[in-house]
Amino acid sequence: MNIAPAWLKTFCTVCDSGSFTRAADALGLTQAAVSQHIAHIEHVVGPVFLRRGRKIEIMPSGRALLQYARDVDAASHRLAHAISPDRSHAGTIRIATPGSSGLRIYDALLSLQVRHPDISVHHRFAPTDDIIDAVIGNRVELGIITHMPDDARLRVRKIGIEPLELIVPATVEIKSYKDLCDLGFIDHPDGASMATRLLGQVFREFSGVKQIPCRGFSNQITLILEPVARGLGFTILPRFARKAFRAQDQIAVHDHAPRVFDTLYAISRAEWPLSALSETVLDEIHRVIADQDKTSVNSAL
């Protein structure tokens, strides 16, 4: 089949992203170049997409080509894994994590690089859905996420827990759910999800995040607690993120029961084995999270 690898990569990216525009952004190409690649493919195999305005649907010939592309990709990875020497402490690893746990993981991986200078770590912080897309699209080899994904293309491994905390200004005393509502919520990209999981278990009065006044929003993990420290509201964050904040004396963790934990999962593509370096990195992450687990469980007793 006379289809250039670059065309095939473009085709798979369009399928995964569902958009010529998003595929162009992901690949660093112009939309015209993406359209040209798809035109070359359709000249060989016939129409692969049904276009309805800005929406696209993969046609039967496109689904067959997508399966072929994934088979070729999987075979290539298996071959590389079989013939490459042991490079468990050398090479480049691309990883994506949530901002919260990623703060602790990134520090540990920097220490790993110091011990093994031949390792190069490319670390992205992203929301869970973006991490899943990055792993499926082969833009990163490893991802750490906070919920179990439902996709046969992913290998999933549970690596530990991440405690969620209700964080308030140090100068404010919270005696009731009404006190929280009066204070207001500082939102962030995972704020609604985390607040629903924690507040829903701790307060019977909780009926949804939208019922609590929003006093601010930040998408920078290191800045989310700044308005809390200044008395402008409360937020919900994992302990990893709270402990990294610069001004611990200006915030407080509200004591509550039951304790609430997120489960952390490592994900990678299921079609091929992890590289030796990825296994090394995953072992280091598991060690870091396991150490945090012990602290979290002991503090919950």
Rank of each mutant, 00 (worst) to 15 (best):
A4S: 02
P5V: 02
W7Q: 03
L8S: 03
T10L: 06
V14E: 07
C15V: 15
C15D: 11
D16C: 10
D16Y: 15
F20K: 06
A23E: 02
A24C: 04
D25W: 00
Q36C: 07
Q36A: 15
I41F: 14
H43D: 13
V44M: 12
V48K: 00
L50W: 07
G53C: 00
G53H: 00
K55R: 04
I56V: 02
E57I: 01
I58H: 01
I58K: 00
P60H: 15
P60D: 11
A64L: 10
Q67Y: 09
Q67G: 09
A69P: 05
A69E: 03
A69I: 02
H81Q: 12
H81T: 01
A82V: 04
I83T: 11
H89M: 11
A90G: 01
T92S: 08
I93F: 00
R94C: 08
R94D: 08
I95G: 04
T97D: 13
S100I: 00
I105D: 01
I105C: 02
I105E: 01
D107A: 05
A108M: 01
L110R: 05
I119H: 09
I119M: 12
V121I: 15
F125M: 10
A126T: 07
A126I: 05
A126R: 03
P127G: 05
P127E: 02
D129I: 08
D129M: 05
I131D: 14
I132K: 05
V135W: 03
G137Q: 09
G137S: 13
V140P: 02
V140W: 02
T146N: 15
P149N: 09
D150H: 15
D151C: 14
A152E: 15
L154Q: 14
R157P: 00
I159H: 05
G160A: 10
P169S: 08
A170R: 04
T171G: 05
V172N: 04
V172I: 12
V172F: 07
E173Q: 10
E173A: 06
E173K: 03
I174K: 09
S176V: 04
Y177R: 10
D179S: 06
D179G: 11
L180G: 08
L180Y: 13
C181D: 03
C181F: 00
L183I: 13
D187M: 09
D187N: 15
H188G: 11
P189G: 09
S193L: 10
M194Q: 12
A195Q: 02
R197V: 08
R197Q: 10
R204V: 12
K210F: 09
Q211H: 10
I212T: 07
C214T: 03
R215Q: 08
R215L: 06
R215I: 11
F217A: 04
Q220S: 10
I221R: 02
L223P: 03
G231W: 04
L232Y: 14
F234E: 07
F234W: 13
F234Q: 12
F240H: 13
R242H: 06
R242N: 05
K243F: 01
A247L: 12
P258Q: 02
T263G: 11
I267A: 06
S268A: 14
S268D: 09
S268K: 04
R269G: 12
R269N: 11
E271C: 09
W272F: 12
W272R: 13
S278G: 15
V281T: 08
E284S: 08
I289A: 03
A290V: 06
A290F: 00
N298R: 15
S299K: 13
A300Y: 05
